Computed example of a mutant assay.
Amino acid sequence: MAVITWPDEVDHVLVGDLTAGLAYITPAGGAVVTAVSPIGLRDRELGTVGFTTSLGFGRKLERIKREPKVALAYHTREHGLGDPANQRFVVVQGVATFDAEPDQAALDRIGEQATQYLGAPQRGRFWDRWLSAYYTDRVLVTVAITRIIAWPNLDATGEPEVYGEPLPDTADSQKPPAKGTGPRVDSAKAAARAAELPHCLLAYRQSDGYPAVVPVRVGDSSSAGVQLTVPAGVAQGGRRAGLLAHSYRPKLVGLQCRQHTGWIEVNGTDSTYAPHTRSGFIAPPNKTLLLLANGLMARRGLAQARKQGRLDDLA
């Protein structure tokens, strides 16, 4: 596979953004989009980007192992290290791999790389023990780039520049789910909570199997679902799709996140999104409380994964 190259203007986005939207494919042919911190991980010589996660939050790793085609959407300059005047919306699509049992040298490199983005890690007898599942069980996910799509602005309007493989043909509508396409959770609450947050992304499966990710604006709700405004060029018709609305503060302290999977019907730039599932969290804007919560969730997730044998499957 030829190594994909990209210009400095795009590289500044990949290096500078504090957070990115990770999209991966579900077994039913839909997509999930969640926020990750890429901490500037990229290699222009090898044509790769990356991000980290924890084995304690290993559900996404299981999905990625099953279907390694992923996308990373660099969608906001907020609190990052890059130039805020660079307003490109950049989507990187590629094939992901990871080592579920990284050595200590790799973990040390991740820690050093993350410090300039997230601040110095907490150290000491209590924190080393409490955050062991969160820090020690970090996993580096590397994405071999297939394609980079860069729009001139964060609304993903205008003509994008494409580096790597050409964009595929527009995907046809998908077969509706057996349980129907209508909302299965409260659309009014979903719309209200998503509209409160500044960053909102939609993800769906392209015709070549990679996730597409675009920014959307949240409107009103009805019995049919949540009204979304999507950029021109989004695949028309109906399909499974994932929705992420989130906010964050410097060093990723003080997070809010709302996630859905569901069904979207697109007509031009207007669409109706019927949410089928919901999840989310609000993290306190206090680093100590945030680390206590991260440690608890990672430890619980890791213990559950070990009990169910999922760690052996990942390895």
Rank of each mutant, 00 (worst) to 15 (best):
273 Y>T: 12
276 H>R: 14
215 P>T: 01
116 Q>V: 14
287 K>M: 11
251 K>I: 03
13 V>I: 12
306 R>Q: 15
193 R>D: 10
286 N>M: 11
233 G>A: 00
144 A>Y: 06
256 Q>M: 09
80 G>M: 08
290 L>M: 15
144 A>I: 07
54 S>E: 08
2 A>T: 12
51 F>W: 12
287 K>I: 13
37 S>C: 04
164 G>Y: 01
182 G>S: 10
35 A>D: 09
187 S>A: 15
257 C>T: 04
118 L>T: 11
313 D>W: 05
293 A>C: 02
119 G>T: 04
118 L>A: 09
194 A>I: 07
44 R>P: 01
51 F>A: 07
69 K>M: 12
49 V>P: 07
162 V>A: 00
210 Y>K: 07
36 V>E: 05
7 P>D: 14
86 N>K: 12
266 V>A: 12
158 G>R: 04
315 A>P: 03
143 V>W: 02
65 K>M: 13
315 A>Y: 08
217 R>H: 08
244 L>Q: 13
26 T>A: 06
234 V>N: 00
32 V>I: 14
32 V>S: 10
221 S>E: 10
247 S>G: 15
35 A>S: 14
79 H>T: 02
300 R>E: 12
27 P>I: 13
202 L>D: 02
48 T>F: 12
93 Q>K: 02
115 T>C: 09
292 L>E: 00
203 A>Q: 03
56 G>C: 10
224 A>D: 15
294 N>A: 01
232 A>C: 03
